[in-house]
Amino acid sequence: MPQSPAIQISELRFRWRSNLPEVLYIPELAVARGERIFIRGPSGSGKSTLLSLLAGVSLPSAGEVRVLGKPLSTFSGPQRDHFRSDHIGFVFQLFNLIPYLSVLENVTLPCRFSRARRDKVLKTGATLEDEALRLLEHLDMGDEALIHRPVTELSVGQQQRVATARALIGAPEIIIADEPTSALDSDMRQAFLRLLFQECEAAHSTLLFVSHDRQLEPLFEQHIALDEINSAGREGP
């Protein structure tokens, strides 16, 4: 039996509140497993909204979102939260880290909520800290001095790499990055992306990468222009 696609959307409609206009209407979208997708769209076009629907933090007003074959709308709230912690790693644009946790605690944070991801790490024979260190090292963050610094004293680029290690720990099937490079300067963006690709490949994770930076677009195999597939606000057929 073929693996279900990473993401499958049909007739998805979403509005934040019933009195607000519709933000998203996506009739059809599918993402196969292991792909690296670049999602672009102007600011305010609903990119982050789409991601929170994929993560099961918000629920569609109509239509269906399947992630790894699972229809999220049929799950209860706690089940969706659990599903997210097991299968999805997140990197945000900025301020990704919990200020009162150390670098290592930030990286291992998902393992506090997901037994599956913790067990996946422990099954390799490594401790959570070993695995966090390994990921940080791959992301050029292995420096002892850096690791013991309070996270609020790290540069933005360093913070984004810690956040990436956190998204990757326990090898979740899907990595979602919401404009993770927009606060970095352009040389750093390329380097950051290379590291991200490398780690996603190693973990066989599907990568959804949101950005409005078209310079990065050629580095991806697949592209989605949200304003093209999103028919919200347009006259329906």
Binding site: S85, F92, S114, R166
Partner: peptide
């Protein structure tokens, strides 16, 4: 609120 969003993203429930 930022901290809460991060916690939500790694799987924390609203009850958490």
């Amino acid at each position: 609120r930022r901290e809460m969003a991060i916690l939500r993203s790694v799987g924390a429930r609203p009850a958490h």
